[in-house]
Amino acid sequence: MDDQLSRVGPRLRAARLGQGLTLEGLAERAGLSASTLSRLEAGKRQASLELLLPLTRQLGMSLDELVHPSTPDPRVRRPSFRRAGVVVEPLAPEGSSVHVFKMTHLPTREVPRPGVHPGFEWLYVLSGELRLQLGERDMTLGAGEAAEFDTLTPHAVTASGSKPAVILSIFSRDGARFHTHEIGEEPDPDAEPLRSHA
């Protein structure tokens, strides 16, 4: 408990700054002197219920939130799915500004038509060999190789050979929609139209 109380000052300061309140402004609203609040935030004044209750009321938070803040589970637990011969495993939280996926390209005889969409793509081959068709170029990437490219260039990726190719991919929002949305998923009304390159 003493360890938790020693952290109250920095948490109190962070909560105050997060609401755009000055030291003087919060102190006045809570009926304290600015010097008392300053010492409390700096850990030079022992935290007590008498001091903390009016402060938490003004900050709109509970005493428990200040003394025992909850730490959200950082693990990403999203289901994997299969789309067009690719097993897609989301590695970033839903709604994240960064779209990261582990993608396993299963061996196939069918080579997809290159497609284009706004944005960019970065990929890293974890295992196997990956065939990357990019514009006029047709290349094979092995484990440990990476590529980054403008996705307005016609492109397609498949496993090369008889073994799966496992890659780590980072997409822009449009790239994630184009490459990983599940079959049957409702289209995003805000997304720009995606198209195949003939």
Rank of each mutant, 00 (worst) to 15 (best):
L23D: 06
R131C: 03
L52C: 01
S80Y: 05
E94K: 14
P118Q: 12
S62E: 10
A191I: 03
S162R: 10
L123V: 14
E121K: 06
D190K: 07
Y124T: 10
Q46S: 12
R195I: 14
T153V: 15
M1A: 15
Q19C: 10
A47Q: 02
H117T: 09
L51T: 00
V157P: 08
R39D: 04
R39M: 12
E121F: 07
P69F: 01
P93R: 08
L37K: 09
S70R: 12
L53R: 09
K102H: 09
S172G: 14
V86F: 05
K102S: 13
E186Q: 14
R83D: 11
L130K: 05
L63V: 15
A143G: 12
P107T: 02
G161C: 08
V76S: 07
L130F: 01
S127A: 14
P164Q: 06
L49F: 10
G60C: 04
P189A: 08
P72Q: 05
S97C: 01
A191E: 10
V87K: 11
S97Q: 15
Q133D: 14
D174K: 06
E185W: 07
R82G: 08
D190N: 13
E65C: 00
T104H: 01
L5N: 01
I183N: 14
T22R: 14
S35C: 03
D64F: 00
L12R: 00
S162D: 15
D2V: 09
E121Q: 11
G115T: 14
L63Q: 00
A143Y: 05
F149L: 06
L5Y: 08
A159L: 02
R82V: 15
F81R: 12
V76W: 07
L12S: 02
V157T: 13
E129T: 05
S162F: 04
A176Q: 08
R177K: 09
R57M: 09
T180R: 01
L63C: 04
H105Q: 03
D150P: 06
V125P: 04
H155K: 12
W122C: 15
D190M: 05
P189H: 08
D174S: 15
S172N: 10
L26S: 04
S97E: 15
L5A: 02
S80D: 07
D2P: 02
F178N: 13
L141Y: 09
K102M: 11
D138E: 12
T104M: 03
Q19F: 07
M61G: 00
E41W: 00
R137E: 15
L132S: 02
D3M: 06
E182A: 15
E121N: 03
P54F: 06
R131T: 02
G95H: 04
G85A: 07
A165P: 04
P154Q: 11
L40T: 02
L23I: 09
S196G: 09
L130R: 03
H197I: 10
F120S: 11
L141H: 06
T158Q: 12
T36F: 07
S62P: 07
L32S: 08
T108G: 11
I183S: 13
S196Q: 13
P93V: 03
T22L: 06
G31Q: 13
F101S: 06
R195Q: 13
A92D: 08
R75P: 05
T71I: 10
H68E: 12
F149P: 03
D188Y: 05
M1C: 07
G142M: 10
V8M: 00
A30K: 12
F120A: 13
T71Y: 02
